[in-house]
């Protein structure tokens, strides 16, 4: 029993070191961005919570960078257009994984109809089009390798 406790404690310690190390790394890698994520919860977002991207550059850097490099990023189709506002009080429902028929369809309905007519229903959009990816000079269905950029 004691050994189980000890193992658990070691495990907890190890986990704490990993999490701490992660935050140290993130803060070192993104020195100009201050992270408010630790202080706010999405559904209780204060009025002055600014754009999502500044936090997500730290918390989900790959998604943030992918968005930035995508057509949506270039054309400034911001997070809330698909994901809604974190406090759920906006016109668009807050959803980390938006329902594709209404959310993608809001802009891409004509294209989705053409695709469905040609290929039938093949799952949601992301079956073929990787989330947050679609750079301006690539084919939309090709998955990108992990970005090596860290600037945002």
């Amino acid at each position: 029993m004691a050994s189980v406790k000890k193992t658990l404690l070691i495990g907890l310690f190890f986990a704490a070191v990993c999490v701490g190390g992660f935050f140290v790394y993130i803060n070192a890698a993104f020195p100009t961005v201050r992270c408010e994520a630790a202080k706010v919860t999405h559904l209780n977002a204060p009025e002055d919570l600014s754009d999502c991207a500044s936090c997500h550059a730290k918390t989900t850097p790959r998604d943030a960078q992918d968005w930035k490099e995508s057509k949506h990023g270039v054309l400034l189709v911001k997070c809330f257009v698909c994901h809604g506002q974190p406090d759920g009080k906006g016109a668009i429902p807050f959803n980390a994984k938006p329902e594709y028929k209404t959310v993608c369809g809001a802009c891409h309905e004509p294209a989705m109809n053409r695709m469905a007519a040609k290929y039938g229903e093949v799952g949601d959009c992301h079956t073929c089009h990787p989330r947050h990816q679609n750079p301006i000079h690539r084919n939309a269905f090709e998955a990108k390798t992990v970005t090596d950029k860290t600037s945002f």
Binding site: H72, I92, H108, E109, K118, C128, A140, F141
Partner: peptide, 18 residues
């Protein structure tokens, strides 16, 4: 085929109906 079909339409950018 997919690429050809979406070449024009998938350029999302501005929102068609939010």
């Amino acid at each position: 085929g997919t690429a050809a079909a979406i070449a024009l339409s998938v350029l999302a950018g501005p929102v068609r109906a939010a």
